[in-house]
Design a binder for these strands. Structure first.
Lengths: 412, 412
DNA sequence: AGTGCGTTTGTAGAATTACACAAACGCACT
DNA sequence: AGTGCGTTTGTGTAATTCTACAAACGCACT
């Protein structure tokens, strides 16, 4: 086993590539070593002949750390610990994801995390000295990564401009867009849908880096593009071929929102997506659909708060059209008008009662609970409503009309 | 008591007016006498000082026979009997409408009924001779009425042309239309709505006379205009001030259809009406609404078969707009598609099951009955549907979306 | 304070609906 | 003919909803 003196830095020489560096580290520490970027994408791995654990193999195969592993590392508090610590951190094995004992360190520049170095402890634990060596290795890796960073940033700016052109319909034809995307060396990924996240507060550079992390680490969707404007994050995402589950996009949205909260304490994010289309020219449409979803979610937080996709909106997709038609017709629901008048005179809440009853799929128990009243009170009120408004609550057409008209009235 | 010899016709002289004639008849028969036209509108009544029954008084006050009385006479089979008989007919009292014993005869020309003469039998019954005299009186009345008929016909043709102009939007401004209507001496009657009846078979002159009868005898609505084209009868009707009930128009439609069937054996009539508006310029709109109702009723006979007004259409009013939006969006309900495919492969009827379940307001019993299956079968199918289509049948938004999309699919 | 009206809550039995399970059926496939 | 799958029907029980009725409350009006 080689021994390097502490006072001499074995990583002082220049390494042509990260591969050389990782081999050197592996050589010095006598362990399998992996370097990944800030988003857990594999940058280099040592060709050490010894054993590897499952997590490492999977990472190398996929050229990125599996999302399951990332999630697990977050849950165990390891990633935050790495990000905050200046020194290497020892991580005990996590069996269910095939992660053996290891030591890791973040590669940090003054602008934040650039990546991580992972060292597997197959047969023996690293010594204090070796911890120190690893820290020096991270210093050297930093310089290499900074160069990559700049190149990537420039590239991304080009992507963003292209994405805006697609979103705004500046580029119309599918062929044209496809060509441009290929020019950028981006993988073709269709069908695709546009996803928008709306942040309550302005997106700071810090949040931006969190977003970038989330977007690149997710493996639920392939994110071809993403751009950030003041309060919004807009993505173009495609479901992976593996998951034929159509709800991949919706799952991604839910996870993104929940993890931004849990991991980075960034809350109050609204998410929405348009439909999935198989040609690029329809991306613009998907974008507008996503905007519609956001608008409707803002207008009807209770009704469609847990809904993210344009498809899921159901009847709410039609509200705008219906409102327009209603105004053209000069239509007013006589029933609701009567109830409203009655409410005004008698200080009752028949309208609200009816709405919540309908919201709850005509279930008296659920509706009564939501209204905080006795079931019989609700039944009594419903009888009153039927009398006053002269309606039939067993007639689906009437019920739907009432439901829609109630919601439409809220729009004005 | 005067006695006129049988062989001498006391009505041979010329009478300047119907009033003179009616007084003469009353004088000859020594009874109160009333003459009305074919539509039971009062033409003349004797000023005989004696008693009268309630029906006669009401008729004179309203200048027409009350609808209740007409209905009662039809129910008792008296009107048809009068229309078919060449001789006067004796009618026994009908207490609940205040109709005392009387004798009546139709006034008939070769083109049909022109009117009726009613003779009250207050103290004594008419003799055979007097029957004969009454028959002669009817002959004389006929000539007078024929002249009136011609004048009325001409007037009506003028009305019809005006009505068409209003319906087709040829006359746009309210003021202009109002003026024209006043020129015709027609009563101003607003709010008004357009009513259309669609006849399965072509409207023959005979049916036309029945229509005319129905339209002029009804007292549920004031019918300002009516025109007849090949298969259609179009009316402009206003609710009477007395009945503030908004469903007067709908009631009229229902009664019209049922009575055309019962009284004249004219069946297969579809009826519909537009909304009520208070300016004449909106009559055109009401007309188009009525047409829409008819179209939708033809497309959804089951769903809105018992619905007549544009308002009652509820959600079906929106179908056209929704279809348009749907086509613009290129939207297809994935759920329904899946179910349809499943039905195709497994020869099941999940789609139909779902539709009828939703039609029946999610009531398993009613739906099972309509489907002629066991309740548990329905429950089983619903579970399948939920599985296959991945939907939540407790979510009103989803349910409404499914309902609407099912109906929309039927439109194509 | 009393009266009347509309409203709310409670109780209890009847009617419906939900759920689990077993049996049998039809049909395609071998 | 047997097997498996999806479907249909029947049974029994638990849960829920409907219904009617009684009691009490809040509030305006007198």
């Amino acid at each position: 086993m080689n021994h390097y003196p502490l006072n001499k830095d074995p990583f002082k020489e220049t390494f042509g590539s990260l591969e050389n560096l990782v081999d050197k580290i592996s050589d010095v520490l006598q362990c399998p070593v992996t370097i990944e970027d800030a988003n857990h994408r594999l940058l280099a791995y040592s060709s050490h002949e010894g054993q590897s654990d499952k997590a490492r193999v999977d990472t190398i195969i996929a050229r990125r750390v599996p999302e399951k592993v990332i999630n697990s590392l977050w849950r165990a508090g390891i990633i935050p610990k790495l990000n905050q610590s200046n020194d290497p951190v020892r991580i005990s094995e996590i069996n269910d994801i095939g992660l053996g004992d290891r030591v890791a360190t973040a590669i940090v520049s003054k602008n934040g995390i650039l990546g991580y170095i992972w060292v597997l402890e197959i047969d023996k634990r690293l010594s204090e000295e070796q911890f120190s060596l690893l820290k020096q290795a991270a210093q050297t890796a930093k310089n290499q990564l900074l160069q990559v960073q700049v190149r990537k940033k420039k590239k991304q700016e080009g992507h963003q401009e292209l994405f805006w052109q697609i979103l705004t319909g500046h580029l119309k034809s599918h062929e044209e867009i496809k060509e441009k995307i290929e020019q950028f060396g981006l993988p073709p990924s269709l069908p695709a849908s546009v996803i928008i996240f709306q942040f309550k507060d302005e997106i700071t550079p810090k949040i931006e880096s969190h977003i970038s992390y989330m977007v690149t680490t997710t493996q639920q969707l392939r994110i071809t593009f993403f751009v950030i404007s003041r309060h919004e994050l807009i993505l173009l995402g495609s479901p992976l071929q593996g998951s034929e589950d159509k709800s991949a996009t919706v799952n991604f949205i839910e996870d993104f929102i929940s993890q931004m909260g849990k991991r980075f304490k960034v809350n109050n994010i609204q998410g929405a997506c348009g439909s999935s289309y198989d040609t690029y020219e329809k991306v613009e449409k998907s974008y507008h659909e996503a905007i519609t979803v956001l608008n409707i979610k803002n207008q009807f937080p209770q009704e469609v708060g847990d809904t993210y996709s344009y498809q899921q909106l159901g009847i709410y997709r039609y509200l705008e059209v219906l409102l327009k038609k209603k105004q053209e017709d000069g239509y007013e629901n006589a029933t609701l008008k009567k109830l409203g008048e009655y409410d005004g005179i008698n200080k009752t809440q028949l309208l609200e009662t009816l709405e919540i009853y309908l919201n709850n799929d005509s279930n008296v128990n659920d509706a009564a609970k939501e209204l905080h009243i006795h079931t019989n009170t609700l039944i009594y009120r419903l009888k009153r409503i039927v009398e006053i408004a002269d309606i039939d609550l067993k007639n689906p057409n009437q019920k739907m009309t009432l439901y829609l008209d109630i919601k439409l009235n809220k729009l004005i």
